[in-house]
Amino acid sequence: MAKIRKAGKKEVPALSTSSLPDLIFSLLFFFMVATSMKEVTYMVEIRVPEATELQKLEKKSLVRYIYMGTPQREYQKAYGTETRIQLDDAFADIRQLEDYVVRERSAMKEDEQSLLTISIKADKDTKMGIVTDVKQALRRAYALKINYAASQRTEYHP
């Protein structure tokens, strides 16, 4: 015998949104983990050169950066428009570089000191003269593992 249903109108139950926060939170956690905030504020203009044979920089804690480029507009009055070096959050002179590397290295754990990598982030219009000077300074400081920061080239344009 069929059950007789009440002839009242059937209402669609409201969509439960109680799991929405959980969804959003999981997305949020993903981005929090995957994100890497900018290490410093650039005081120099940097457009990294392009290349194809790139390797990833493995451990962030073993990498120190040297930035090179022309000062950004707000600093041009004080620092001119020649290529300058930036270490951490300040402009630096090439003579400070050796000290900087030694200081940074001694601040690292002893067993990791030999793994220190210096990443040179330089603008693509930088002249090689200053890059060579930096490289010589790094050699003197025994920071021999270096990395030229570059971005992946998508198409070939010589």
């Binding site: 949020l28 981005f31 929090m32 995957a34 994100t35 890497s36 905030m37 900018k38 290349a51 044979e53 790139l54 390797q55 990833k56 920089l57 962030k60 990498v63 990598t117 990443s119 490289k135 790094l138 050699r139 003197r140 025994y142 920071a143 021999l144 593992k145 270096i146 990395n147 030229y148 920061a149 570059a150 971005s151 992946q152």
Partner: peptide, 20 residues
């Protein structure tokens, strides 16, 4: 986090300098 994120990993050409 979406706005501040930079997903790009640092990449570059790795080299070894000669001994001083």
């Amino acid at each position: 986090f979406l706005v501040t994120t930079t997903m790009s990993v640092d990449k570059g050409l790795s080299r070894r300098l000669p001994q001083p």
